[in-house]
Design a protein around this nucleic acid. Structure first.
Length: 429
RNA sequence: GUGGCCGUAGUUCAGCGGUAGAGCGCCAGAUUGUGAUUCUGGUUGUCGCGGGUUCGAAUCCCGUCGGUCACCCCA
């Protein structure tokens, strides 16, 4: 058992450039959409008092935390989510902040779980929250943002669906059915599993609670469907032209721990309705954690499931490939054709870099053919060959396979012109 | 927490009781300072680790670690 291993810990992630690129792509789109919706970025601590999570979710949650006692004797835990930190931060300062507070964060979270597809022990979460606004309009804008992120990633109507519900519909139903309020949690468990569970089992469990499948179905089709907050939400989103992305589904329960109103989840339709994001209203949490009343709603999206989603959806993947075409590529490569001219070549490299162009060159004497190969492999569009004819140099367009002789003095401008001619930045939704 | 499958070259894998293999990649060369293709040559292994069975184990058995997928859970 004392197998000392230097491998990365299970479920922790090593981002080699290829996977780092995808991650950065997701981050870039998250940030861009959040910006468009008027959210500003903030950041909370990665390590928190274990009590913060215990307070919010109860003792059971501790088993799923990376937690330990620090050198100062404090019980601490790596954050498994960021909402409690946010609730504390917002509650502490909300009196001096203009409402609504619209904040987002992208950060690593950690959960001690067995890993599987779309789930590791370390993952990045994109969180958007609106605080200090109790109106359903905030829920709607948040859902619009979530849809905006999906679309920005190249996902379309038919690829995913936002299922919305309201945590308040079921207490209302239970009261009417004469079921005691303390059974709410057990009841919601049954509702949550209804879709996957065998009908007889669902029926039996509902029976134990004093209601029935028929009553539930009737409620879902009737009053539940007409539930005013959800109607308003649908109308808001329909006005934005987003109605096609949304479906009311009262089976959405979402943990139930601290949600107080509208809840929603985004599902991947084609791959068996996998949840890629979720959120809702949590008007009590800021009081519980930070001591001040602050209405709030928010949602979170992890990088792993959405990453898989993009990989498995051809049109989303090709959009990523387009983005990749310029990401992490150098722009210019300086070929040293004559070692006697290496000083001039180094000066050229620095000039290009100072002009803002990603530029590389061979560190040691290398055959010209190899240098051109390296330029190609690094993604350079322009190759500037410096040799014995200096100050005459050769500028090659590696895409068009054309070369011209130019003066060294005008080389930076010529390279820039070539790159401008060659390709514009990728266009995303 | 429960269960299935899988660990062999840098990588993808084949080999399934008798001396460790292939494709791809990588490196070098095919007349002078230019990318592709092609051709030639080269390159690498504690067969995850530990134990057991056997004359002999990459191969069979047990354990262990790791990976992966599903269930549970999902804040």
């Amino acid at each position: 058992m004392s197998t000392t291993s230097l491998q990365a810990l299970p479920g922790f992630r090593e981002f080699y450039p290829e996977s780092c690129a995808l991650r950065n792509y997701l981050f870039a789109q998250w940030r861009e959409v959040a910006r468009r919706y008027g959210f500003v970025e903030y950041e909370g601590p990665v390590l928190e008092p274990t009590e913060l999570y215990r307070r919010k979710s109860g003792e059971e949650i501790v088993k799923q935390l990376f937690h330990f006692v620090d050198a100062g004797g404090r019980e601490v835990a790596l954050r498994p989510e960021t909402t409690p930190s946010l609730a504390r931060m917002a509650a502490a300062k909300h009196k001096e902040l203009r409402k609504p507070i619209k904040w987002y964060q992208i950060g690593a979270c950690f959960r001690y779980e067995r890993q599987q597809k779309g789930r590791g022990r370390e993952f990045y979460q994109f969180n958007c929250d609106i605080l200090g606004e109790a109106s359903g309009a905030a829920d709607a804008d948040l859902i619009a943002l979530a849809i905006g992120v999906m679309r920005r990633l190249g996902l379309r109507e038919g690829d995913f669906v936002v299922r919305v519900s309201d945590r308040n519909v079921w207490p209302d139903f239970l009261q009417r059915e004469g079921v005691a309020g303390e059974h709410l949690s057990a009841f919601l468990q049954v509702i949550d599993k209804m879709e996957r569970e065998k009908p007889e089992l669902t029926e039996a469990r509902l029976g134990e609670l004093g209601t029935s499948r028929a009553a539930v179905d009737a409620f879902i089709a009737g009053e539940g469907a007409d539930w005013a907050p959800l109607q308003a939400l649908r109308a808001d989103l329909a006005a934005r032209g987003l109605g096609g992305f949304v479906a009311v589904d009262l089976g959405i329960v979402r943990g139930l721990a601290y949600y107080t109103g509208v809840v929603f989840e985004i599902f991947d339709i084609s791959r068996g309705l996998r949840a890629v994001a979720g959120g809702g209203r949590y008007d009590q949490l800021c009081k519980l954690i930070g001591g001040s009343d602050l209405a709030a709603c928010g949602f979170a999206m992890g990088d792993m499931v959405i990453g898989e989603f993009v990989k498995e959806t051809p049109h989303a993947w090709s959009q990523y490939q387009e983005w990749l075409a310029t990401y992490g590529k150098i722009e210019a490569y300086v070929v040293v054709a004559d070692e006697a001219r290496r000083p001039e070549a180094l000066a050229m490299v620095e000039d290009l870099r100072s002009a803002g162009l990603a530029t590389d060159y061979a560190y040691v004497p290398t055959k010209v053919g190899r240098q051109v190969q390296a330029a190609e492999a690094l993604g350079a569009r322009a190759a500037l060959t410096i040799g014995s004819e200096f100050p005459e140099v050769r500028l090659k367009d590696l895409g068009a396979r054309q070369e011209e002789v130019i003066e060294a003095a005008g080389a930076v401008a010529a390279v820039r012109a070539l790159l401008d001619r060659a390709a514009g930045p990728p266009r995303l939704a």
